[in-house]
Amino acid sequence: MVAVVRTVLGDILAGDLGVCDAHDHLFLRSPVLPGRELDDPGTAAERLRAFRGFGGRSVVQWTPHGMGRGADSLAGLSRSAGVHVVAATGLHQAVHYPPELLGRIRDGLASLFVSELTEGIGSTGVRAGLIKVAGAFHAVDAHARLTMTAAAEAHHRTGAPIAVHLELGTAAPDVLDLLCGELGVAPHRVILGHLGRSPDGAVHREAARAGAFLAFDGPSRAHHATDWRLAEELAALAGAGFGGQLLLGGDTTVPETPGMPHLLRRLRPRLEEALGAEAVDAALVANPARAFAFEPVREA
């Protein structure tokens, strides 16, 4: 079966994804970031055009359900900029939602995720292309267990990949124990985000040996100090034989960050100097094509 990635304009061949920002945000709203929303379609268009100007062809937006995904704008932005955009379903940590919203949807999460993956987000007709969930700091708390259980069910029903926000880069082994050990998700269908925020090489290697994709996706957030140690972390993993599991992203979450063009304008040349162009090309092109592809659903 031919591998496809589900974009906001429809399914495309995975090999057509091109240079990919594997984790970013065009739109984002959260009560923990008051007054710092990403909610301007004009600014989103500027980011996409600038990204394309540096050779970017695809952006995966990890903004999940209930956090201002801008689903009604994504198709138009993708079309006008000439950049593939992948939207997300799923749910973030509980702190990002009003309690009444969580109470209303908690018992039907898997069905909600499946609906947004197969039918569309609301009335927009835009279908999500991945399921985003989140762990807690050094733990999988009750909310994470709830959302990850629903994500696993939705994955098994649709073949969609699962992307995981690791709080400050922690709890990767616990997340994999739950998703892959207990819930039966194949490790290569899991993308672990924010690993660069916790520079623990032993944990990185453990997650890589398990078979998950490893996303180093915070270079636009200067206070996380990811840029200066990124090349060393990636080189260590590539040298250990895990170059085929590495992903790169910008994770723009507030308006004042440099944005997704930073990934290609500044980081890419630095990483090519340290790792070589072939390794960086794999992280930006070949690896995302496999990480974000849908897989055939096994018959029950």
Score class of each variant (00 low, 15 high):
Glu299Asp: 04
Ala286Arg: 01
Ala277Pro: 01
Ser80Ala: 12
Arg157Ile: 09
Ile105His: 08
Pro219Val: 05
Pro288Cys: 04
Gln61Gly: 14
Arg106Lys: 13
Ala75Asn: 14
Gly159Thr: 05
Thr252Phe: 10
Thr118Tyr: 09
Leu263Phe: 01
Gln61Ile: 15
His224Val: 05
Ala14Trp: 15
Arg57Thr: 14
His204Phe: 01
Phe137Ala: 15
Val297Asp: 05
Leu117Pro: 00
Leu33Gln: 12
Ala75Val: 07
Ala136Asp: 13
Ala14Val: 04
Asp200Phe: 00
Met67Thr: 06
Ala151Glu: 04
Leu178Ala: 06
Pro98Ile: 10
Arg69Ser: 07
Gly244Tyr: 05
Cys180Tyr: 01
Glu256Ala: 11
Ala128Cys: 09
Glu37Phe: 09
Gly276Arg: 09
Gly201Pro: 03
Leu176Ser: 01
Val190Met: 09
Ala212Glu: 09
Ala286Asn: 04
Ala3Met: 13
Ser198Val: 08
Val8Asp: 01
His155Val: 12
Pro99Lys: 00
Glu153Trp: 07
Pro199Ser: 02
Val4Trp: 07
Ala289Asn: 15
Gly181Thr: 07
Pro41Trp: 07
Ala171Trp: 02
Arg221Pro: 11
Ala134Cys: 11
Leu214Asp: 09
Asp281Met: 07
Leu101Gly: 06
Arg229Gln: 14
Arg270Ile: 02
Glu167Ala: 03
Thr7Tyr: 04
Thr226Gly: 03
